[in-house]
Design a binder for these strands. Structure first.
Lengths: 196, 196
DNA sequence: GACAGTCTTCCTACTAGAAGGTAGACAGAG
DNA sequence: CTCTGTCTACCTTCTAGTAGGAAGACTGTC
C-alpha cells in the first residue's frame, strides 16, 4: 500500500514551492518536470490543466491548515500560547526558508488574474483562517486571558493582515527576523494586563 | 512643449495597472499594445526589455511616493493627521479601484522571480517608506502627539506591514471596507491618550 | 497457471498560440 | 537629412495542452 502514487504528491509539493516563489504565472509545467524528473505530458496525466493542479494544491493546503488549527486547539490550551505557536510556526518556515510565504496569501495578491476555481479556494482560506482567529480571540477574551480592543472579528482581521504583511516585509528586506519584529507586538498587545 | 512623448507615459501607466492586477508575469507586451493602441515593437522602442519597462515604472512610482510624502509633510503638520491622510489615500485608491494595491508590495511578493534591477528598486521603496514612517512616528512621539510602545522603526515596520496586509485582505475578500477595518485601529493605538 | 483484457502511469512526438525581442522600412518634424 | 516614433514582418523560445503508444500491474476466466 504505502503510497498509491507518490508522483502526484511530488508534483503538488514542487508546484507549491514554485508558487511560493513566484505566484501563479511564475512557473510552468516544464519547471515542475525538471524538478520532479518526469515529462511535461505526465504532469497533464495527473492534473489535466494548470488550474486543476493549483486548485488541488490550494485545497490540500487548506486541509493541512485546518488540521494544523485543530491540532493546535488540542495540544495547546492557553489562547495566547496558541497564537504564539501559530506565529512561531511561520517564523520557523520563513527562517529555514522551507516555505517562506503562505501560498494563499501569495495567490490572493494575484486574484484578478487567477482562474475562478483557484480564486474560490483562496478566498475560502482567508475566511477560514480569520474565522478561526476570531473564535480563538473571542474565547480568550471570555476567559480573561486576552484583552481585545475591537470586536473579535476585527481583531482577527488585523492579526491576519499583520502576519501577511510581516511575511511580505521579511521577503522584501531579505531578512527573516523582520517577521518577529512585526508580529511580536501583536501578542504583547493582546496579552491581558496582570491586575495592578 | 506639453509632452515630449505621451506614449511612453501611456505605456507606463497601463503597465502599472496591469502589474497591480497580476504582478510581473501577469502581463505581456501584447496586453499593453492592445490597451494603448500601438504595436508590440513600438513598446520595445521606448523600453527595450520588459525589465527596463518595469524598473522605470517602479522608479517613477517611488518618485511619486517620495513627492507624496514630502507634500504631506508640507500640508499637514499633525503627525496623527498625516498618518490618517496616508491611510485615507490608500482607502480611496482601493475603494474607487483606481489602483487597489501598492505596486511595490505586489512586486515584493514575487521578489524571487523578479529581474535583479527591478528587485533593487522594490527593496529601496520598502526602505524609504519605512524610514519615512519611522521618522514621522519618532517626531510625533517627541511632541507628545503619538504614543509608541516599541521603537519608532519597529512601530514603522508594523504600520507598513499592516497596511500591506490590509490591501491583501481587501483584495481577498473583494471588499474595500476591510482596509479601514484593519488599519483604523492602527491610528487609535498610536493616538496619545488625553490626560485623565 | 496461462491467457486476455483493462487500468495506470509514463513516454515520445506533436500542436497552436503566446512570450519577449529583432530587423528594417517608412513617414513626419526639426 | 537626420532623428523619432511607428509600422510590418519575422525569429526563437516557451507555454499549456493533445495524441497515441509502450510497459507494467491488477483482474478476471478458463
Amino acid at each position: 500500500m504505502s503510497n498509491l502514487s507518490t508522483t502526484s504528491d511530488d508534483i503538488l509539493t514542487c508546484a507549491r514551492s514554485l508558487i511560493v516563489a513566484g505566484g501563479y504565472n511564475g512557473f510552468s509545467y516544464a519547471d515542475i518536470a525538471d524538478v520532479v524528473g518526469i515529462r511535461k505530458a505526465s504532469i497533464h496525466h495527473h492534473f489535466p490543466s494548470k488550474a486543476d493542479l493549483v486548485r488541488t494544491l490550494v485545497a490540500r493546503y487548506r486541509k493541512e491548515a485546518e488540521a494544523g488549527m485543530a491540532n493546535l486547539e488540542r495540544q495547546v490550551s492557553d489562547p495566547l500560547e496558541r497564537l504564539r505557536f501559530y506565529l512561531g510556526y511561520w517564523e520557523a518556515c520563513i527562517t529555514d526558508a522551507s516555505a517562506p510565504f503562505c501560498v494563499c496569501a501569495l495567490l490572493a495578491s494575484q486574484l484578478p488574474v487567477l482562474p475562478e476555481q483557484v480564486g474560490v479556494e483562496v478566498r475560502a482560506h482567508f475566511r477560514a483562517l480569520s474565522a478561526w482567529l476570531a473564535s480563538l480571540l473571542e474565547r480568550g477574551a471570555l476567559h480573561g486571558r486576552l484583552q481585545l480592543v475591537g470586536s473579535p472579528s476585527a481583531e482577527a482581521e488585523t492579526f491576519m493582515a499583520t502576519v501577511h504583511g510581516a511575511m511580505l516585509s521579511a521577503r522584501a528586506y531579505g531578512d527573516p527576523k523582520i517577521f518577529a519584529v512585526v508580529t511580536g507586538p501583536l501578542l504583547e498587545r493582546l496579552a491581558a494586563r496582570s491586575p495592578l
